[in-house]
Design a protein around this nucleic acid. Structure first.
Length: 218
DNA sequence: ATATCGATTATCT
DNA sequence: GATAATCGATATG
């Protein structure tokens, strides 16, 4: 059920004020934290190893760049809430709003190291686990993949408060310390100047990040 | 009203 | 490496 002695009881929810800071600081400090979905025997959890910062009104690559719409409204709201959207008509991606109300900065979650609920994740993803790190990485390496593995969808989870541990979708700290953070351009952003900004952050020692190897070696 | 393209992924060659 | 899948936001007529 749980990997490496992972115990949900050791995870403390991050307070809302954690998210009420500049997006780059929030993004970097989110690495190593634990994303939890569901509870009891439905619990699924993983450690964040890859995130990207989106800078709202000053970032042409942000969904919030052209102002508020029904889809992106959560990003303009208070910090610490889930912005979940559908991409390419078939996958969901999850973010957390940060900074403060009226400032649409957000962090996209791109990959997790699976910690709990691996059988449920494997079922959701259609992956056969064979005990290898490779097969575990198949579960949650990529923004669409991790939402599928966790069971996160826009209708169910958009707008949820990550700082409320009983909300069914929350983020906590279990004391894990990230050794080294690497920064790269964001994946899937092609137009300049945003494509050259180093707003993707990964845990350098992790085998669970997405993207090509050449990009992840610094 | 219609066309284009995307903060992606699985499945080809 | 190339392409299809498939919906909604955005651009264009």
């Amino acid at each position: 059920m749980s990997r490496d002695g992972f115990e949900i009881g050791r995870v403390r929810a991050l307070p809302q004020r954690f998210y009420a800071r500049d997006a780059v600081a929030v993004a970097r400090e989110l690495l190593g934290k634990v994303v939890v979905c569901g509870s009891g025997r439905n619990l699924r959890a993983g450690r964040l190893v890859e995130v990207e910062a989106y800078m709202g009104a000053s970032d042409p690559a942000s969904h919030a760049y052209r102002g508020m719409t029904e889809r992106n409204a959560v990003m303009f709201g208070p910090p610490g809430h889930a912005y979940v959207y559908l991409i390419y008509g078939q996958y969901f991606c999850m973010n957390v709003s940060c900074e403060r109300e009226g400032v649409a900065n957000a962090i996209l979650f791109r990959a997790l190291e699976p910690l709990a609920g691996l059988p449920a994740m494997a079922r959701a993803r259609g992956v056969v686990l064979d005990g290898s790190e490779r097969s575990r990485a198949q579960l949650t390496s990529g923004p669409g993949r991790m939402c599928t593995a966790l069971g996160v969808t826009r209708p169910r989870h958009n707008g949820r408060a990550y700082y409320q541990p009983d909300s069914g979708l929350w983020i906590g700290d279990d004391g894990y310390v990230v050794k080294r953070i690497r920064e790269t351009p964001r994946i899937g952003i092609t137009s300049q100047p945003a494509a050259s900004w180093l707003l993707r952050y990964i845990v350098a020692e992790s085998a669970y990040v997405s993207g090509p190897k050449w990009l992840n070696r610094g």
